[in-house]
Write a protein that binds this DNA or RNA. Structure first.
Lengths: 376, 376
DNA sequence: TTGTAAGCGTTATCAC
DNA sequence: GTGATAACGCTTACAA
């Protein structure tokens, strides 16, 4: 005991005992002061803090976690750290975590197995909460249910709807309403909806991560007529069969390219004249709604190849508002997920009692850029 | 004691004692078997493993870290999780870490202060190693030196060169040699070099993260004549003064736009005819080398605006090979950092003795795309 | 309000 | 090679 207090300053990491000795109090008091369990701002308080600072004391998290089974860490599991939505969440989450001196454990998992492995590993580390930004197509219900008893789990981006986990997603119906209203206002009379079929494990960086493509599709179908926008079922079906793509790029870009080619290139070559007909907008859509930015980019490529102009001939709205949206030429109008709010909600839901998980849907914001600039 | 062994299976997390009781050995033996400190593959080994599996036993990392001061965790600190280079590193690093059942702690820090805060926090968690992918302009020498005594630190992307930390970067001279040779082969007779001045805290997602812009610049100046490529000092200087940008987009894109505008728009309007003169390539560069993809994209925007064609009038090579490079129209030839090798090296250097840090420079790979397609 | 002391689950050290 | 036992640094009853 005496050894510790005296020898401490030499080289080893100072412990709470060293601080206690220097401040002339017991280690219990130091613990109470430093963890805020002591209210008064008196001489003892001051002495302890000074001693801690002087010794460069930092609490040993392993010991704290062991004793009080709160790890002061939360886990985030995602298939791809490079997805701009996930990256945005991480960037927003970090300051919130720092403020609570909580660490972020990151795990990458793209398959159901690796995802399960990650979840188990995080659970073994006794994280205080788990955020999962998964590919929607993965079936993790069983794993999640098993662990949700012990740790609060928050799913981001609306993967699966379970009663044991919380969920944060985007209000797809509201997003679609805003999109369709904007398109109608900008003069579009018809629209097609392009999705890439939520392919699991695909290289992301697409930007659509926050959105539930299925829900968007349903909202599109339900709402088009409300805004006087014409569509055809066959415009909105992903044609996976023929990969006619001469295009290089990510899978999502190729899908956008192929889909646009199919819509605009199949029969007539003199499209520009066709669309000037009174009923031209029934033959070819005047707008494209893409579930992520990469699809939109691929479609733009196709339109460019075909000599169609954006937005004069075809307007485009994408979802995600990734950096890609700004990099495009012309820049893309895009639905921007409320990243900061999502991060804040995730923190709230993890802190809330895990016995009452809730499913939260936040509205996205339409960022209008050149790809839907009004012409008239 | 008896309580634990008997009551364990009910609901609480099983501990090593439960496993020991079930296997009929001491907890010390269980520890040795499970942590691989025991070689034999006999009956005891089998019984212990079976018991562990049956009870769903997972080692308590907090306790392990407390006792053996190995946290089984490494920290990664970066200013922006969304930077594609950093994201790539994380994606590659994760499986390597999982194989060693080590966790990744992620910290975001864009200013010197927050960076220092993160480093201190990670050190307090006793991570086994620290990877820092910092903005080069931040001065972290002092903090790094302080902590390098205790934990091995690996800097990625060549931030500062210290004798106490390891460093992994790209061999700029080799990259530039490959770039210039390729440009010469593709018919370019002159080139300009565009950098965005490594602005700290700028929104990244640019792709240049792995490269040392200063070293690239030096290599460009030193090597152009070797490949018979003409350049002018004034072509290669960032003009920060006039922000004439009518362009929206990230700062890096605007810098690329402005720089290209300055190079190609200032005096003559009939550039295409000028460049067809015998000495036209001395008036305007026939190629642009950009230190990241976003700059290149901005420059492409400018060239497009001016009616210049890529690659016929101007060839472009960028650094980083971010998703942006593929999204561009035409797609960008880009220097691709060896992400997987960098991740592997980082693991090696962290495992190596911290007393002998080394500075490693790996070659990048030139991915040729449309922006330098040969014309002739 | 403060000090004392008993753990938290693991690994390292020591006898055997 | 195995088992008992003592730490690791912290928090928290409980006693003062």
């Amino acid at each position: 005991m005496a050894r510790k207090a005296s020898t401490a300053s030499s080289s080893s990491i100072p412990s709470i005992a060293n601080v206690a000795a220097l401040a002339g109090v017991s280690s219990a008091t130091v613990s109470r002061v430093l963890s805020g369990k002591r209210v008064k701002d008196d001489d003892i308080d001051r002495r302890v803090r000074e001693a801690a600072q002087q010794l460069h004391y930092e609490v040993n998290h392993a010991a704290r976690a062991l004793r009080s089974d709160a790890a002061n860490a939360v886990g985030l599991i995602t298939p791809d750290a490079g997805d701009p939505f996930v990256a945005g969440i991480i960037n927003e989450l970090d300051p919130l975590l720092c403020a609570k001196s909580t660490q972020l454990l990151l795990g990458i998992g793209s398959t159901a197995e690796s995802m399960e492995w990650q979840i188990t590993a995080m659970a073994a580390r006794q994280v205080d909460g788990l955020i999962i930004a998964a590919t929607p197509s993965l079936d993790l219900a069983e794993v999640l249910e098993r662990h949700a008893q012990r740790i609060p789990i928050v799913q981001i981006g609306g993967a699966q709807r379970l009663f044991c986990t919380s969920m944060i997603g985007v209000d797809s119906a509201a997003s679609m309403t805003a999109t369709l209203r904007h398109l109608a206002d900008s003069g579009a009379r018809s629209a097609a909806f392009i999705d890439d079929g939520h392919r699991a494990g695909a290289y992301l960086t697409n930007g659509g991560g926050a959105f539930d493509a299925g829900a968007l599709s349903a909202a599109f179908t339900a709402q088009t007529s409300d805004f006087g926008i014409f569509t055809r079922p066959e415009w909105n079906i992903v044609d996976r069969g023929k990969a006619r793509s001469t295009m290089t790029g990510t899978p999502a870009m190729r899908i956008g390219f192929d889909h646009a080619m199919r819509l605009f290139d199949d029969e007539a070559n003199d499209i520009t004249t066709t669309t000037e007909d009174a009923d031209g907008f029934r033959q070819r859509p005047e707008a494209l709604i893409c579930t992520n930015d990469a699809i939109a980019l691929g479609a733009m490529y196709a339109l460019h190849t075909l000599g169609l102009r954006i937005p004069q001939d075809v307007r485009i709205v994408s979802h995600g508002d990734a950096p890609l949206a700004v990099a495009a030429m012309p820049q893309l109008t895009s639905q921007q997920p409320p990243i900061r709010q999502i991060a804040t909600e995730a923190m709230r839901l993890m802190a809330a009692n895990r016995d009452c998980p809730s499913h939260v849907f936040l509205p996205s914001r339409l960022v209008v850029r050149e790809s839907t600039r009004q012409i008239r």
